[in-house]
Design a protein around this nucleic acid. Structure first.
Length: 574
RNA sequence: CGGGACGUAGCGCAGCUUGGUAGCGCACAUGGCUGGGGGUCAUGUGGUCGCGGGUUCAAAUCCCGCCGUCCCGACCA
């Protein structure tokens, strides 16, 4: 039993000055965590119990799914990470250090290499597969900007598992097993979440989904269709298009369009010239990019911006993507800033990528590749061909759902889990192979599955708190019942103690506020701040043989006869 | 990395413009009153004023440098 009289806890009346989001403020005020450095936190008893409760739920679901727990060091040698090139690729986000012999070490940001090598060391036959192993481990990433308290720390607790299969069907099964286990886990944690398709991107592999807990302070934006449930990361959102159905336009017509380097100025001039009717969406924006040193042109409708993240996610293999700068324009004199059009791309040796909205047959007003000149009736398929379609334009609320055409909304969320099919990247790099049934060597295919454990504490706090404080779901609350004894008489304290002991002996955890020197107001405020799901108050009404029972969530109150308190609590918890 | 703000007691803040005994609230200690909503009165404890240098008889305060923290952006899983 936890007793407030001895619990290592000090609640705070004021919000900490460095906290912005609710979970951060409340976890600090309620004495769950304390900041040590930017993005680095200590866990006090209440917080640590909560964190371990979340770990317990995760473990139970992982074990139930048949996965096996292992534990790696956090302090790791550089060599495995050199073999996969991540020692370089990870860049400054990696915490690096040296030992006394000047050897390079790192604090593990994620453990694909270690898991792969561990399996390589033990297994060498297809008969050993499939295999899933996981760990709950402290991870380190030297984030450029840690923020939002423990939502995005530089040191954090993560559950990561890895699946090992002989073939794609096996990988698909391991992936599904994780998906199911994650759904069960997050439901038990009391989180509302959406499963969102994501890009596996440069990591290779095919399928990838994120588990996002919607919450206004979340730092991830995603697209959601409230009608059919389609959800996608902004990068992964697919554009809904229909084939061109209009008439074939007249031949290209070049126009004098002085001082129209922007879409807005172009639309104004067109409307002046032709008496109105032109919109930004009738124009074609040619955005020039440098992709790993190669110039490419991306076409989007004039009323949309290019979303570089979407472009990057849809150009696999490209590491460095940026907009043309003045220097680039200076080097390519044929590309006239503000007057670029796709008609001459071949001649200019430019690769052309089009947003799916630029359908074949559609015609546009676009640059004539001459200063102060534009062209109209420039038709896709007739006047220019593209090297490929690519999701390039920004996603907006109200865009059509690719599944059901209903307008989508854009929402914010905290990423609490991510599952994806890694494929053979790591197994290949580290030469993890097994012999198949024909005795031939096969590279193993892998999946990687993460849950942000410490982040989940904050995510639950974000989703469940109210204006009075924290409010935990039953499974993870530091105690299931918070018992308050008030007054200066002995009876409330002795009766409360009896009930507390009885509950504990039934396996129900109790936090007992047995302080003699705190006023009732202080105890009530603390109980609400701390956020255990059931609050029992032994005080005034005890004279009538009654105890006040409160449900923290919703703050419902009622009086219960002393004799039936225990059965009442038990039935509420089951 | 770019822009902005901040650093004074465990926490939240004032003092800095105009240099001269370091202050308030919470928390903490002791005692009294109070005892169902962070109550109240009294008396206390607690400070390298982020660090280093400079100016000055004298620096929390003015000047220079550094470090740290938070927010927005870029970046990242």
């Amino acid at each position: 039993m936890l007793r407030m009289s001895t619990l290592f806890l000090r609640t705070l009346r004021d919000d900490p000055s460095d906290a912005e989001v609710a979970s951060h403020k409340l976890l600090v005020r309620a004495g769950y965590v304390r900041r040590i450095a930017a993005g680095i936190y200590s866990w006090l008893p209440l917080g640590y119990i909560t964190l371990r409760n979340i770990e317990r739920v995760i473990r139970e679901e992982m074990d139930r799914a048949g996965f096996q727990e292992v534990h790696f060091p956090s302090l790791l040698p550089k060599e495995p990470y050199e073999a996969t090139n991540r020692w370089n690729e990870y860049g400054p986000d990696l915490f690096r250090l040296k030992d006394r012999k000047d050897g390079d070490y790192l604090l593990g940001p994620t453990h694909e290499e270690m898991f792969t090598l561990m399996v390589k060391g033990e297994y060498s036959s297809y008969k050993d597969l499939p295999l899933v192993i996981y760990q709950i481990q402290t991870k380190f990433r030297d984030e450029t900007r840690p923020r939002s308290g423990i939502i995005r720390g530089r040191e954090f607790v993560m559950k990561d598992s890895y699946s090992f299969d002989l073939d794609d069907e096996g990988l698909a099964k391991s992936y599904e097993r994780h998906r199911d286990a994650y759904i069960k886990t997050f439901n038990r944690l009391g989180l509302r979440f959406n499963i969102v398709s994501a890009m596996s991107g440069a990591m290779g592999g095919s399928r990838s989904e994120e588990f996002l807990a919607p919450c206004p302070t979340g730092e991830d934006t995603y697209v959601l269709c409230e009608k059919c449930g389609y959800a996608a990361n902004v990068e992964a959102m697919k554009t809904k298009v229909s084939p061109y159905s209009g008439e074939t336009p007249a031949a290209i017509e070049e126009l004098d369009t002085p001082n129209t380097p922007t879409i807005d100025s172009l639309v104004d001039v067109m409307n002046e010239r032709f008496g109105g009717g032109y919109k930004a969406s009738d124009t074609l924006k040619n955005v020039l990019l440098m992709a790993d040193g190669e110039a490419i042109s991306v076409l989007v409708p004039g009323d949309r911006e290019v979303d570089l993240k979407r472009v990057a996610a849809n150009l696999p293999g490209v590491v460095d993507l940026r907009l043309f700068d003045d220097e680039d324009f200076a080097k390519r004199k044929e590309l006239v800033k503000g007057y670029v059009g796709p008609q001459d791309a071949k001649r200019f040796g430019l690769k052309l990528y089009a947003d799916p909205r630029i359908v074949v047959g559609s015609h546009w007003i676009t640059g004539a590749n001459k200063l102060n000149r534009h062209a109209r009736y420039v038709t896709h398929g007739r006047d220019f061909q593209v090297d490929g379609f690519i999701e390039a334009a920004e996603v907006r609320a109200g865009d059509e759902c690719p599944e059901c055409s209903h307008p989508v909304i854009i929402d914010r969320a905290i990423e609490i889990g991510h599952i994806f099919q890694l494929g053979r990247k790591y197994a290949q790099a580290l030469d993890l192979t097994v012999l198949d049934h024909e005795g031939k060597s096969q590279v193993v295919t892998m999946g990687s599955y993460g849950i942000g454990v410490s982040r989940a504490v904050a995510a639950v706090a974000e989703q469940t708190h109210d204006e009075l404080g924290l409010s935990w779901p039953i499974e993870i609350a530091p105690a299931k019942v918070h018992i308050v004894a008030t007054g200066k008489e002995e009876a409330p304290f002795t009766e409360a103690e009896k009930v507390a002991l009885a509950l504990e002996s039934s396996g129900i955890t109790v936090l007992f506020d047995d302080r003699r020197d705190a006023s009732p107001g202080v105890k009530f405020k603390d109980a609400e701040l701390i956020g255990n799901p059931i609050i029992l108050i032994f005080g005034k009404s005890l004279a009538d043989g009654k105890v006040e029972l409160r449900i923290r969530k919703g703050n419902e109150k009622r009086e219960v006869p002393l004799q039936s308190v225990i059965t009442e609590v038990i039935s509420l918890l089951s």
